[in-house]
Write a protein that binds this DNA or RNA. Structure first.
Lengths: 329, 329
DNA sequence: CTGAAAGCGCTAACAC
DNA sequence: GTGTTAGCGCTTTCAG
C-alpha cells in the first residue's frame, strides 16, 4: 500500500505537508499542492481508513443492522429505510442471522467489536437480558420489543389497531361471519392482532373464530380448505399476513366460491409485489416499514450523538383497500 | 471510552499485560488474567476496532456491496449469497444506489475510502472506464458485465440459454404461436433473452413475435391486452420476468382464455414468493442468484488475498416447470 | 509556507 | 510472568 511517506519521499516534502495538501486544510502554494496531488494520483494513493479514523477526532459513523432474513421483503424495506437515514455520512454494516436464534444472539453480542457505533436489531426474538447487557456498551434500537434500558429505543407498530381496522372494514362490507387466520401463539404480534380482531368482532355483535395456524401460503390454504370441507362457512377472512391470505383465497376459489362476493379477504403487511399482482388484488394492512427503518436510523444516530429524545416510537398501520374485500353497494 | 490504559491504571499492571490478558495470547498467572478480565468487564471495556486493525497485521476483511435496490428480491438474494461467503470473517458494508446512476457512480468511486478491501457491484449500468479506474485501487467483482481489467472478475448468467430453454419448453408443450414479452432494447440481458427466444423459435420452424415492453406487471398486462384486442392470438408467452408474466396472465384471463390450456406462460427470475402463490402457479426460468452471490463473495475474498484464479464465471439457468405451462398429454 | 514531533489505542518483539 | 519500547499511518499543534 502506498502511504503518505511514499508521496513525501517522492516529492521531497514532509509527511505533514503531504497530509495537508491532500486534505486541503493547511495553506500552501498552489504549486506545492499540485505537485503533491499529481504524485499521489500517479502512485495510486488511497488513504488508510483506519489510521485516518484513529488519528482524527471526527470519525465516520458505522451502524450495524441485524436482520433475521434479508430476502424477506419486510426486512429489505427496513434496510432501505435505514440506508436513507444513513445518507452520505454513515456506513451500514449488514448482519444476517439466517433465522438462527443462536446466530442472532452471537451477532448482537459481538457487533460492538467490529467498529460499530450503534446497533439496530430488526425484529428480535432474543431475550431482554442480552439487549440489556449489550446496551451498556453501545446504543441499540430495537423493533417490536420494548426495553427499559438506558441506551435503547424501541420502534413498534400498533398491530392491535391494524387488526381492528381490517376487521371493522370487513364488517362494514357486510360480513357477518369473519374468521381470523392467525399466527402461532408465542409471537407477540400474533397475540396483538388476534386481540384487535376480537375487539372489533365483539363490538359489532359478531362471533369470533380464530384459527391458529402459521405464516405460510400453505398454512392458509390448508386451514381454509379444512374449514370449508367440514361445512364451516364464512364470509370474511382476516389473515395474519399476505401469504396466508393468498392461500386462503386459493382454497376459497377451489371450493367454487368467489372473492370478494362470497368471501371478503384482507391480509397484513401489504407486500405490494404480492397484493397488486393477484386476481383479485388483495386488500391488506400496511405497515410503514421503510419509514420505520428510517426512523430507526435517525434514532440510532441521535443515540450515538448523545441526544436521545425518544424511548419508544409507535407507528400506526393503515388499511389499503383493494378488490378482495370490496363489495359494491 | 475506556481503554487499555484505564484498565492498566486500575489494576496496576502494564498496558501490554492487559492487552495480552484480553487477547489470551501471552502466558501469565491465572490470577493476573482473572483480575484484568474482571476489571475490564466492570469498566465496560470495548476494544477500539480501528486501533486494533491498525496495530495488528491481520485485519478483518471488509467487503463493500453496491446494489441498485435492496428491496428487489434479486438483490436481496444476491446479498444473502454474499453474506454466506462472508461467514464470520468478513464484514459486509451495504451500499444502495436507490436506482440512481449518479449515486451508483459516486458509490463505486468512493467505496475505497471507507476501509473497504474489495467491492462487489451488483448489476451495474456504469461505464467500463469507471470500473477500470477504481479497479486499480481495489479489487472488484461485477455482475452482468465483462471487464478486462486486472483486478476484476465478472459473474454472468447465460440469459440466452435461459430464454432458449423456456421457449423450447413451450414448443414441446404444443405451442405454435409464441410471443415474447421482452424488455427494453438498451439492457444487455433483454437482448440476450430475446436472442435465445428467437433461436428456439426459428429452430422449431415457428415465427417469432417480440413485444418490446418493459419490466412491470402493468407493462405485461397492457401489452397482452392490446395484442388480444386486435385479434392477434397466441398460445404461448415467454415473458421477460415474472411480473410481466403475471400481467400477461391477468389479461389472458380477462379475455376469457385459460392458462395453460389456451395459452401457456413462462416467466423469468423464479421469484418463488410470486410463482408459487398465483393460480395457476407460474413456470419460470430460475437464476441461481444466491449461489452467484456466494460465488461473488468468495471471488472477492480471493482477489483480496491475491490469488485470483478466475476472470469470468458463467452460471446456467434452469427451468422450473409449474402449472402455467404444463399441458397434459 | 513548511516541517518536526507528539499522539490516537493497540500489538508485538524483546528485555527484565 | 511482566514491563519496555517501538511502531501501525495519519492528523494536528506548534515552531521555524
Amino acid at each position: 500500500m502506498v502511504k503518505l511517506r511514499d508521496i513525501a519521499e517522492e516529492t521531497g516534502y514532509s509527511i505533514s505537508t503531504v497530509s495537508k495538501a491532500l486534505s486541503g486544510k493547511g495553506r500552501m502554494s498552489e504549486e506545492t499542492r499540485n505537485t503533491i496531488l499529481s504524485v499521489a494520483k500517479q502512485l495510486g494513493y488511497t488513504p488508510d481508513f483506519y489510521a485516518k479514523s484513529m488519528a482524527s477526532k471526527t470519525k465516520i459513523l458505522v451502524i450495524g443492522l441485524i436482520v433475521p432474513d434479508i430476502t424477506n421483503p419486510f426486512f429489505a424495506y427496513l434496510t432501505r429505510g435505514v440506508e436513507r437515514a444513513c445518507g452520505e455520512s454513515c456506513l451500514l454494516v449488514l448482519m444476517d442471522s439466517f433465522r438462527s436464534l443462536h446466530r442472532e444472539e452471537q451477532l448482537i453480542r459481538t457487533a460492538r467489536f467490529y467498529g460499530v457505533n450503534g446497533v439496530i436489531v430488526g425484529n428480535s426474538r432474543v431475550n431482554d437480558e442480552l439487549i440489556n447487557e449489550i446496551s451498556k456498551y453501545v446504543p441499540v434500537v430495537i423493533f417490536d420489543k420494548e426495553c427499559k434500558c438506558e441506551n435503547v429505543v424501541s420502534i413498534v407498530m400498533d398491530n392491535y389497531y391494524g387488526a381492528y381496522l381490517a376487521t371493522k372494514h370487513l364488517v362494514e362490507n357486510g360480513c357477518k361471519n369473519i374468521v381470523h387466520f392467525g399466527g402461532t401463539q408465542e409471537l407477540y404480534v400474533s397475540i396483538q392482532r388476534a386481540h384487535g380482531y376480537e375487539t372489533a368482532v365483539k363490538e359489532s355483535g359478531l362471533e369470533s373464530h380464530i384459527a391458529r395456524i402459521g405464516y405460510t401460503f400453505d398454512d392458509g390454504y390448508k386451514a381454509a380448505k379444512k374449514l370449508l370441507s367440514v361445512g364451516k362457512t364464512f364470509d370474511g377472512a382476516f389473515c395474519m399476513n399476505d401469504l396466508v391470505a393468498l392461500g386462503v383465497m386459493k382454497a376459497i376459489k377451489e371450493e367454487g366460491l368467489k372473492v370478494p362476493e362470497d368471501v371478503a379477504v384482507v391480509g397484513f403487511d401489504d407486500d405490494k409485489q404480492l397484493c397488486e399482482v393477484t386476481v383479485p388484488s388483495l386488500s391488506s394492512v400496511r405497515q410503514p416499514v421503510e419509514m420505520m427503518g428510517e426512523t430507526a436510523g435517525k434514532a440510532i444516530i441521535e443515540l450515538i450523538n448523545g441526544h436521545s429524545n425518544a424511548k419508544k416510537i409507535i407507528f400506526s398501520p393503515s388499511l389499503i383497500v383493494r378488490d378482495s374485500s370490496l363489495r359494491g353497494g
